[in-house]
Design a binder for these strands. Sequence first.
RNA 1: GUGGGUAUAGCUCAGUUGGUUAGAGCACCAGGUUGUGGCCCUGGGGGUCGUGGGUUCAAAUCCCACUACUCACCCCA
Length: 422
Amino acid sequence: MIKAITGTKDILPSDIRKWYHLENLVRKIFQNFNYKEIRTPIFEETSLFARGIGEETDIVSKEMYTFRDRSDTSITLKPEMTAGVVRAFIEHSLGEKQPLTKVFYISPMFRQERPQAGRLRQFHQFGAEALGSTSPLLDAEMIEMAFEILTRLGLNDLSVKINSLGIPSARENYKNELRKYLSDKKDKLTEESRIRFEKNILRIFDSKAEQDQEIMKNAPLLIDYLDDESKQDFEVVKKYLTDLNIPFEVDPKLVRGLDYYTKTTFEIISGKVGAQSSLCGGGRYDLLVEELGGKPTPGVGFAAGMERILLACENENVLNLPEPYIDVYLVRIDSDLMLKVSEIASSLRKNDLIVDYDYLNRSVKAQMRDANKMNARFVLFVGGDEFRNGELLVKNLSTSEQEKIKVSELSSLINKIKMYGS
RNA sequence: GUGGGUAUAGCUCAGUUGGUUAGAGCACCAGGUUGUGGCCCUGGGGGUCGUGGGUUCAAAUCCCACUACUCACCCCA
């Protein structure tokens, strides 16, 4: 049997309602903030991600789905969205058309990691990017939008963590301080953290190993080495979040794994989804546009993992979606009326009703069971004496009431059904 | 890439110290009045017990290998 590729999942008809629900909410909230949707290709030239995300990052160095096409171009399935959005922003000179560009997206992403709870190789993210302003109000707005979506879904077990990484020069100064601090303690770190010491020293803070944490407990913190501007902006972000009643905690150890971040970074974590608890992450990237060949343009954005969010919803049991139903199920009493039934179905469907019937020539009883299973509001019996008299029998399945109507009065029935339950 | 766990019907699982034709619930199909659902009752279909090898008179059960899934590390959404 051929099965779906490791780490990929089918979203079956029985799952689709919660996806619609989430996608509709996402579009609605982003519209409220006047973000416009953008759709970029599912693959890009590999160099875009290598330059945008950073050669040394885990994503680029070992997680990308990369292949050569027939013209020998190196292609990569997008592992995240920001690089693609920035590429489109530059390519179409969006910055020339208005000073501030606000976009959102909903899209699959691809990373070749080992799957586990809340982590897939093809997964879906929604997110937003605002290009053209350094205002910390936009930093806060990103958190606000993400938080709004998550809480409107009904999620409770959330924590918002924020940090500031400062501008590159401040970060370099700090890294030197950290190196100084660790120089005589290096040997006591785990092997992995010794590699981090060379590759990305900030990551040592992330280590779950006790021996590392012990050493890092007294390490200098980046937040104390921030440049004045970053410090001021961070204060504004905090104040704005407080005004918005969004609970947050400053996590000086929050280091994100993408190279392009500057100043504000943030993450929203759920306590309900296992080890991969980050539902959402983002931050400011004031140098990325220039890095990718555009005019210097500051930006800020975030991305949220939809599978993880739906997992959190399930585990918090907060997604109480209404049962699917159909308006009318047509029951064929005489087996020679198949065509008549499909005709009536067609005219009901043209009037925006959800209509189904039996295609398998089953008994009346089987058809009724089918109607019940589909949660039909009404059953229309076609056949028998009534039909010979130009009438149809209508049954309301929740009250079991039946009445006869004339075939010629179908339109008034249609109106009645449309009004039903609204 | 590294570790742990699991693998029996479409789904969730049971299967006693290895011992007849491998079970249950749910789901599916048919019937329980000649034209009517939900609940209930009766019957039915469906399994090379993940794959391959080994031990044994005898393997779903014991051993080995492989594969898949899963959780965790790493990293991230």
